[in-house]
Design a protein around this nucleic acid. Structure first.
Lengths: 194, 194
DNA sequence: CGCGGGTTTGATGATGCTCAAGCCCGGTGG
DNA sequence: CCACCGGGCTTGAGCATCATCAAACCCGCG
């Protein structure tokens, strides 16, 4: 049960089977339906969320109600509003289900207790943070130097399923382009292939 | 002595004066001249660097020898190639001095020893990581939704000195625009003011 | 069926890039 | 101390990419 999470932990740190079992006691499972929200901007983000099945998106709604997708999370990925979860300030981001999804939820208090109970998890989360930061910096550079088509190809290459499962609208927003532009890019790519 | 570093630590975590004193023993000071490199891409990054005076830049050189500035670090800022430092893989980034610079250097082994000796520093570095990640995500969103001039104004607002101390060339690269464009933006802004 | 949201397609325009030339200024050597 | 580089910055003209606006289309769902 919950092999996805256990594998994620095992792949990053050395940890005993007992500790793995103990680990699960800090989480609780949660299911939500498509279009429901896991987090509303303005609320304080109280959980770390690990996706077991389905698809979530986090996004930022600016002053003029434009949405900007920050991240997708499908099976095996973590998602949260980092700034809010760790600082206790109101969240900047919304998190919404793009499909019916099953999650493992780690409340902040459980997170803190887990760090005491299983010190090795400290390292696991630090690794997650580091990897996120490295990935974010890479994405930043690419968003500035690469044209839209090339960024889209990178996305397909790295996260093939997400590029196809998420609505065009959201993929475009994640790439920082308009839906129209993404639609045209897809047309050109399919024409070029055939 | 080294008040900048001590203040940075004090401002983020609770720590005793003894521990602060012990803390400094893990660092060694280093000075370099303008144009010298602190890190060459391809080498493994062995240190965390804290700037006491001067100005550094980290940048990524792509296949076609185009440079992309990732970060500036002036007094009171940390800089490193995170991915390389923590994973031991070759660095993607170069780090170069834009001015004569004085630094406090924390080698990897000292870093690990310090974590054992002063556990509170674990938290300090996790906070640095978190803040970097939040900042990187904000910058990413802005780089996609805001036009060049607005991004420049944000930079001036947040890091006024850097926008003026660093060469135009590097500021432009940091913003993801060409030097020509930044030059024109500056002209328009100064004309509009007068 | 017909409605409606998401997607496609088209026409137009703005932002920022490229290429090319000139300029300014600081550093170096005579 | 001056003359002369040379690199960085500026300015201009033309062009590519992508956004905007608007309309048609497609398909699932009531």
């Amino acid at each position: 049960m919950h092999e996805l999470l256990l594998n994620s932990v095992r792949s990053k740190i050395a940890i005993s089977d007992e500790e793995l079992k103990k680990l699960l006691t800090f989480f609780f499972p949660r299911k939500i339906r498509k279009r429901q929200y896991v987090l509303n901007a303005g609320d304080v983000c109280q959980h770390l969320t690990f996706v077991e099945s389905g698809l979530l998106r986090s996004f930022y709604a600016d002053d003029k109600a434009n949405e900007h997708v920050v991240q997708f999370a499908s099976e095996g990925w973590w998602i949260t509003d980092m700034g809010s979860f760790f600082s206790g300030e109101p969240a900047m981001y919304n998190i919404e289900a793009l499909e019916d999804t099953e999650m493992l939820v780690l409340p902040r208090t459980s997170h803190d207790m887990m760090m005491d109970a299983i010190p090795a998890m400290e390292r696991y989360f630090r690794l997650l943070l580091q990897n996120s930061l490295v990935a974010s910096q890479k994405r930043l550079i690419r968003s500035m130097k690469d044209p839209a088509e090339s960024r889209y190809l990178t996305l397909i290459n790295d996260y093939h399923d997400i590029a196809n499962r998420a609505p065009l609208h959201d993929v475009a927003s994640y790439l920082g382009i308009t839906p129209e532009t993404l639609s045209r890019i897809r047309r050109q790519l399919s024409q070029r292939k055939s």
